[in-house]
């Protein structure tokens, strides 16, 4: 085949488009899932949490979380009288096996606070990554590309919520993915699926029919450390001001 200059010039844009598709890499694993249709987050209803630790165990099984490390964990707070700045916080093994019976406290209040990655919209952890191994996916989930991570742990230090750790065997950063492999298949995250009281709810802020919109209109909701301006998206219902 003989290609003259005119044909060559005509072919050039077509070749460029074909090359772009070639560079785009492997297609998504979930064919019916459109990333731009979602903006995922979570709602935690503190008065419903009983501290059973089902979420922590389910998370560990679903995501092969190594012992002693947590993608989600539960803290038990005891705030006595007006000592808001000095709450007594315990989390034995991340609350994985629940909590032993608490002694009755006449002079204070107890409550449980489940914690996980806040999937911040302006996340400090993704900003400090020197190699682009952690990022906010187009559907609002903060993920780690473990084949690209160097394990420098900048992100572990940058997270104001202590949600990241270095995986002891893989030597790379690991964290809650909001069970990305589940939510892209239409399932609930393992912690939400296994919460017996419905204290944890998966939320899609881009879905106009998601009950979160009605909930946010009728409840007093906070995020953790709003002063950090990280755009945290895990909403806590009826959270005490002593929670850090």
């Amino acid at each position: 085949m003989k290609i003259d200059r005119r044909h060559f010039l005509v072919m050039l844009p077509a070749a460029a488009i074909a090359w772009k598709y070639l560079l785009a890499g492997t297609p998504e694993a979930s064919p019916n899932y459109t990333m731009t249709d979602h903006w995922w987050s979570m709602l935690i209803d503190i008065p419903k949490c009983i501290g059973c630790g089902n979420c922590v165990r389910a998370c560990a099984v679903e995501n092969d979380v190594p012992d002693g490390h947590f993608r989600t964990w539960v803290e038990r707070y005891l705030v006595t009288d007006w000592h808001m700045e000095n709450p007594e916080v315990v989390s034995p093994d991340g609350g994985k096996e629940g909590f032993s019976a608490a002694p009755a406290e006449e002079n204070g209040k107890y409550f449980f606070v489940p914690k996980l990655c806040n999937h911040c919209a302006d996340s400090p952890c993704t900003q400090v990554c020197p190699v682009g191994a952690t990022f906010i996916a187009p559907d609002g989930v903060v993920l780690v590309d473990q084949t690209y991570c160097l394990g420098c742990a900048y992100c572990v230090q940058a997270c104001p919520y202590g949600c990241r750790y270095i995986h002891p065997e893989k030597r790379v950063a690991d964290k809650c993915t909001l069970c990305y492999h589940r939510i892209t298949k239409g399932l609930k995250p393992a912690c939400v699926e296994n919460c017996p009281t419905g204290a944890r709810q998966l939320v899609d802020l881009k879905d106009p029919y998601d009950p979160i919109h009605a909930f946010l209109k009728t409840h007093y909701v906070q995020v953790l450390k709003p002063q950090m301006a990280t755009g945290a998206k895990v909403f806590y219902n009826e959270m005490d001001g002593s929670v850090r």
Binding site: A24, G25, E28, A29, E62, F135, Y180, T184
Partner: peptide
């Protein structure tokens, strides 16, 4: 796929989504 959606490897999203489920 680096730079497909931002300063990261776009294919990583699909790889994470492809993890097997247990529940």
């Amino acid at each position: 796929s680096f730079g497909e959606y931002g300063h990261y490897r776009g294919a990583a999203i699909g790889e994470i989504a492809a993890h097997p489920i247990h529940f």
